[in-house]
Amino acid sequence: MDSPAIATVNGEMQAEAHAHPAYLRHHFETVEQQREAASFGMWLFLLTEVMFFGGMFMAYLIYRNWYHAAFVAGSNTLNIWLGTINTAVLICSSFTMAMAVYSAEKRRRKSLVTYLILTIVLGLAFLGIKAVEYAEKFELHQVPGASFSIEQFVHPTDPKAVALAPDMAEKTQVYFSLYFAMTGMHALHMIIGISILLILVVRALGGAYTEGHMSTIENFGLYWHFVDIVWIFLFPLLYLISRYR
């Protein structure tokens, strides 16, 4: 029953024996297999992210139909220009991220680092603008739970705004709950993304992704673009309800 196997075969030894590149992990046969597995794994993870945000989109859909007037009122309190600028900022960051992937592909270390840093800067700019918007909500007592006041919706100071019945004005809390839950979750994903980007920059400076192994950059790119896509949907759904009033 004793195995004739060379039981000491371990990862590194085998990798050396077959003269594989150092980044090929021992349980993969080829670099291509490893790359495909990593990208497939990342896509499956994004699938879970779709379902994660999906629950909140579901809630949004129902409440928007139930409490349309409250959603209009709530949406019109948001600053559409900040929202538009933020969308543009995020699209720019997606572009720089795509260019970072391209640079890694072409093994240009300097431009990879530049594009990654640009992505971080744009991500931080997005979060900065978001913070300004959040701060304004706190000042206007539009944060459910913390200090919500329906007064502004029942007796709006803006002459153009439509006054809501107190009953419907209560429902603006649902809008703001969803607003904070959805943008909050999105911002959390941005923060996680920026943290990872910082690590990537440090490792990219050491040349980690320009030696032919760039699936980490590629897969992080997928994550970053996904976060962008979530915002692409959040922007019209939260900011653009009946703006023509």
Binding site: T84, T87, I91, S94, F235, L240
Partner: peptide, 28 residues
């Protein structure tokens, strides 16, 4: 494995920016 070049990225990038402008404009 296919490498996508900067030309495509730029084209997509500008289309996205135009669409963003468009969606804000249409909302009014």
């Amino acid at each position: 494995h296919h490498v996508v070049g900067p030309k495509v990225y730029l084209l997509i990038f500008f289309t996205l920016l135009v669409c963003t402008g468009l969606t804000t404009w249409v909302a009014f």
